[in-house]
């Protein structure tokens, strides 16, 4: 029974393809009128044409299992690629789903010309089911595409936020910005230790001015980093401890006695220079 219903749909699609395509494109263009800058002209038409062709191909195979069957694979692939590209281009979920749902109106108009009464109701019901599951597929893929974008941005943020800079020959600085969690500590630790090896630095300054909150976990992560650097033969100085954070550390009872701590990066740097036997001196008398 389902097959015969889809047969009717296929028949209508075959006979009225141009008409349906025109009506569909008009609807889509109306809905996306504000988004003209995102899609190249012709791209939408190409996508719609491809979709109708794929849909026809899948319908003629007679299989109704949209999500898993072989016959629907080209349709699924096409929908996936469209949804993904739209997610990247910054379309809203509504605009992406509209691509499928706006096909309903021209399709039903064509179906009405083809049948009437109970037949029509049944055909409309079956094609609604079909288009709804395709719409859900699009939305789901769109969501996945967005999640990928977010994951990639997180990764980039992770790499961007842990720069190791060389202040002087033998002195490294690691200005930390943002909350330290386990994943970030791992990246921070690895990049700091690698930089210590690469530059042969004996002193590393970890500046936590940009760390908003220091709790026991963050402190533990910091101490781990310091311990690892010490194992490699480099001394760590923690600087940029704000008054609030100093209070928190003591209240929490975190033991950081083994580590040199300084209030500002400048203090830490001067200690580092002192350790290396260097001094900054004024070359001429100050002109007053």
């Amino acid at each position: 029974m389902a097959e015969s219903r889809n047969d009717a749909l296929l028949q209508v699609l075959r006979d009225n393809e141009q008409e349906i395509l025109r009506g569909w494109l008009q609807l889509q263009e109306r809905d996306l009128s504000l988004r003209n800058n995102l899609l190249r002209s012709g791209e939408l038409e190409q996508q719609s044409r491809d979709f109708l062709a794929a849909l026809r191909g899948a319908l003629s195979a007679g299989d109704t299992d949209i999500l898993t069957s072989e016959a629907w694979a080209p349709v699924r692939e096409l929908m996936t690629s469209i949804a993904r590209s739209r997610a990247r281009q910054g379309f809203t979920p509504t605009e992406t789903a509209t691509f499928v749902f706006s096909l309903k109106q021209p399709l039903f108009t064509a179906l009405r010309a083809h049948a009437s009464g109970d037949d029509l109701a049944e055909q409309i019901w079956s094609s609604t089911l079909l288009l709804d599951s395709l719409g859900l597929l699009v939305t789901e893929t769109y969501q996945k595409g967005r999640e990928e974008v977010i994951a990639r941005q997180q990764q980039e943020l992770l790499e961007l936020s842990t720069p190791v800079v060389q202040l002087w020959a033998g002195v490294l600085a690691l200005p930390l910005i943002g909350t330290l969690d386990s994943a970030r500590t791992q990246v921070v630790m690895e990049s700091l230790l690698q930089a210590i090896v690469d530059t042969g630095s004996a002193i590393a300054i970890i500046d936590i001015t940009g760390v908003p909150v220091v709790d026991t976990l963050v402190a533990q992560h910091l101490l781990k980093t310091v311990a690892a650097a010490r194992l490699m033969g480099a001394d760590c100085i923690i600087s940029g401890i704000r008054p609030q954070i100093a209070q928190t550390i003591v209240h929490l009872g975190v033991e950081i006695n083994d580590v040199i701590t300084k209030a500002t990066l400048a203090d830490a740097f001067s200690i580092a220079l002192q350790r290396l036997g260097l001094a900054v001196v004024r070359r001429t008398a100050k002109a007053v």
Partner: peptide
């Protein structure tokens, strides 16, 4: 000591 070794020990 290699960085990876230091991290492991810690």
């Amino acid at each position: 000591m290699q960085p990876s070794v230091a991290i492991t020990l810690v």
